[in-house]
Design a protein around this nucleic acid. Structure first.
Lengths: 147, 147
DNA sequence: GTAAGTGCAAAGGCTTTGCGCACGC
DNA sequence: GCGTGCGCAAAGCCTTTGCACTTAC
């Protein structure tokens, strides 16, 4: 494993850009850095508002296009939702999610035994499985206290 | 367990409506029946096009509002996606999903050992877990043949 | 220098909201 | 008859597209 290449960092980002023949523009770098800072799976508009503080002239389209490009190339991941705006995650390694059904928060967690769950044989035969993920849903501590 | 109440059927639907003080209008019944017929987790527009064949004067808003109401009350489930239009599922019992990343098909499957996966203790303590679901992603047989 | 990327503007979808009329209970 | 639900229309977002200008390589 090449750590440089796989753990999210500014350096790994530059490497990935070269691999995909993407230009490492200041805008892209700023967007990537913002994602590095976030652990709440922000959507484009949140990233826009934050990056604009550093980059006042950046346009929303650049944010959106960049995030979609990153997602397509596997530089970032897209997280599943229920029809809300697309949300992005800097973590592309195997992990799992807890989702709060009230505040819509998504919390990442790692759990080796979930990584190793066996795919049912009939599905294994029929499909090419590329990713496995466990999604837990419920109510987070903050929302639990409110009610 | 009250089978009448829990397995999806027209009868169980009427019971559920009464429980939630919803009127069982012909429109709602038609929408519910259409979902009963579908196993591909359709979004509102698909349901609209199909129901309109039986109910030419039904409006899209009715479909959309009805589906959202059903989802909110737990009469149907909403399936997770990546920012596309909301998709709905008549199955509200525990099951899991395979998603094809190419054609976006979602296939339901049941797998007891997935139902019984243990929630990590630290999460168990912090959150109230209401649902567990395994999501497998990859390429389905149809898309696999094409490439 | 060249191709790729950015910013701006406009259009296209999907979803939501408000309101008068209709209809199930 | 009462209150919920429906249909229609309009508005509000989010996302996508096209194009000229700019910039990284």
């Amino acid at each position: 494993m090449n750590k440089e290449k796989n753990s999210p960092s500014v350096d790994s980002f530059k490497v990935k850009c070269k691999e995909h023949r993407l230009k490492t523009t200041p805008q892209r770098l700023a967007i990537y850095k913002e994602l590095l800072r976030s652990d709440d799976h922000p959507h484009a508009d949140i990233v826009f508002k934050k990056v604009r503080k550093i980059f006042p002239h950046i346009s929303f389209d650049t944010i959106n296009r960049t995030l979609l490009t990153f997602a397509e190339l596997g530089i970032v991941a897209m997280v599943e939702g229920y029809g809300e705006p697309k949300r992005f995650d800097i973590k592309t390694d195997q992990h799992h999610h807890f989702r709060c059904i009230k505040c819509k928060d998504i919390v990442d967690f790692y759990h080796t035994s979930y990584d190793n769950i066996k795919v049912p044989e009939n599905l294994q035969r029929q499909y090419t499985i590329l990713a496995k993920r466990v999604v837990l849903e419920g109510i987070c501590d903050k929302c639990g206290k409110k009610s």
